[in-house]
Design a protein around this nucleic acid. Sequence first.
DNA 1: GCTATAAAAGATGTCAAGGTCTTTTTGTCT
DNA 2: AGACAAAAAGACCTTGACATCTTTTATAGC
Lengths: 169, 169
Amino acid sequence: MISQTVEYALRAIVTIAQHGEKPCTAQQIAKMTQVPAPYLSKLMQVLVRAGIASSQRGLHGGFVLARQPTELTIWEVIDAVEPIKRIHECPLGITSHGSLLCPLHQRLDGAIALVEEQFRGTTIADVLAEPGMATPLCQEIETVELKTEPTPRKRPKVETRKQAKKKKK
Amino acid sequence: MISQTVEYALRAIVTIAQHGEKPCTAQQIAKMTQVPAPYLSKLMQVLVRAGIASSQRGLHGGFVLARQPTELTIWEVIDAVEPIKRIHECPLGITSHGSLLCPLHQRLDGAIALVEEQFRGTTIADVLAEPGMATPLCQEIETVELKTEPTPRKRPKVETRKQAKKKKK
DNA sequence: GCTATAAAAGATGTCAAGGTCTTTTTGTCT
DNA sequence: AGACAAAAAGACCTTGACATCTTTTATAGC
């Protein structure tokens, strides 16, 4: 019911919210949220365009929340990446009863309305500050090192650039 | 949020429920519900296998509800064609906090739970018998003729079988 | 100003949902 | 039994969500 993309977006937003002012690179977010890195990059672009995140290029760049966590709802995040559409008019296009929905679609829309209400009423801050709970995203923030590359313990033997590159992946 | 397929299935179920004991052919249902006929056939097979509808081949065959409308919920129909999955464990696979969900996924699952509750609590009979409302599916039952083919007014001139076949489509 | 870093942009690939078409099987009515 | 009606089955096509890869552009630090 909640698409992959929405899941990913929420994980990303919660993650950068956790880091406050400190920008996170797409790579870091991808790692922490376990989202495919290239796909996450694309997603972040959407969130930036929607005014939910803001980005900074270059060294020490990355993504931060564009708004206060208390002022950003789950609904808005979802709406940016994959809007949940309410049923406002008869999907069968019958106009004989004006804009009144038939019983079936009334019920369906009712369910959607519940979800909307729930999500509009939940801010990112709410998710961050669940009292007495495990940290959001089911993992400790400290789990992921923010340093781009920990100093290697051992210097590997002489090897070409190409080989080194391959190893990274 | 509600997929096409689920929409189609619900329309079909409501339609055959409206017709009670009288079987509806896939063609008729397709027409009434405005669902592509071949696709609806496939869908009906699923509903039959799930024990929600039952089918009868041959002349005067078709589909009828396999249960009383009062005993069949919207949830069951959805569950048959495209189950809504609750979030029972951390999608990130972190097990450090047992089976406890993080705040984010608690909220997401909460929303899903609301939908589940709503749909489990609504039977097909509820949808049929909305008091003082337009008929379900936003259209009059009478709109669709149950006769397979109204008597043609004019006999067309001599024409080959092939041409006749082509015309039908 | 050069270099390294990181986001932005755009082209491309993959797969499952949605949709179609054809043939086979099963049933009813004459 | 034969003709017809209808579901069942299965092969096939189309599209959009999900995902990847490569090139370009902007920025900080030296």
